[in-house]
């Protein structure tokens, strides 16, 4: 069963009566354990596609399936539930909760899921350990570097073991060294835990490391290359 499947996915933004097509009949299939990048220049529609798959936007037409669940028809509460239980997010700007420590941020999604405290702590520390952040577990985000913050964001995304992690330009705010480290760690999570990653990026360092690159141009898939 595919982790993600889109069929003829179209998204048109409307503002002040002006319609701007962002995606045009995009069909995509992502299998479990894939390490895939959506590439393309700014405005090509990769972030829109990522947000549609994550249930943060609703499509104008077409279908989106996450595993066995068609998500087009879900109401906002059901979409939130889907994101909570099946999808992890990594954002460009880290977006950690500034009043929670690294460990508490990592526990956050599991807290929303209602996992018991000891189980949350254990899973959070396991993933922080994998991401080499265990020594920084009790630090607040403002006491961490950009690279460390993004590692915590990745920990938060994967700690609850979602079917899919969506990462929107995860290395855009990092220098090349930290980008390299982060990509290495995400690859490790992908290999060790079988976590499926889908990136939206134009960072060559990511594109080099992924197994598959889906290139978008003007809202359409222009190439789909598996390495």
């Amino acid at each position: 069963m595919s982790v993600v499947q889109t069929k003829d996915l179209t998204k048109i933004y409307s503002s002040n009566g002006i319609e701007t097509p962002a995606l045009k009949e995009v069909s995509l299939d992502v299998q479990p354990g894939e390490f895939t990048a959506l590439a393309g220049p700014s405005g090509s529609g990769k972030s829109t596609l990522l947000h549609l798959i994550g249930g943060l936007l609703l499509p104008t037409s077409g279908e989106i399936w996450i595993e066995d669940q068609k998500i087009n028809d879900l109401n906002p509460d059901k979409l939130a539930e889907l994101r909570l239980n099946r999808v992890g997010f990594v954002f460009q700007a880290y977006n950690l909760i500034p009043v929670l420590t690294a460990r508490e941020n990592t526990e956050f999604v599991m807290e929303l899921q209602g996992l018991p405290e000891n189980e949350r702590k254990k899973q959070a520390m396991d993933v922080l350990n994998t991401l080499e952040m265990n020594d920084y577990a009790d630090r607040m985000p403002n006491k961490l570097s950009g690279g460390q913050q993004q590692r915590v964001a990745v920990a938060r995304a994967v700690a609850a073991q979602p079917a899919l992690v969506l990462a929107d330009e995860p290395t855009a705010n990092l220098d090349s060294k930290n980008s390299e480290i982060l990509m290495g760690l995400m690859r490790k999570l992908n290999q060790d835990r079988g976590t499926t990653f889908l990136f939206a990026t134009h960072d060559p360092q990511i594109l080099e490391r992924v197994d598959r690159v889906v290139e978008l141009h003007d809202g359409e898939i222009s190439s789909d290359i598996k390495k």
């Binding site: 906002p76 509460d77 939130a80 994101r83 909570l84 239980n85 909760i97 956050f108 929303l112």
Partner: peptide
């Protein structure tokens, strides 16, 4: 606002 947006994106329910 941004932070609450992230919390909602991560899957928090509106009631929460």
């Amino acid at each position: 606002t941004r932070e609450l947006g992230v919390v909602l994106a991560l899957g928090s329910s509106r009631n929460r």
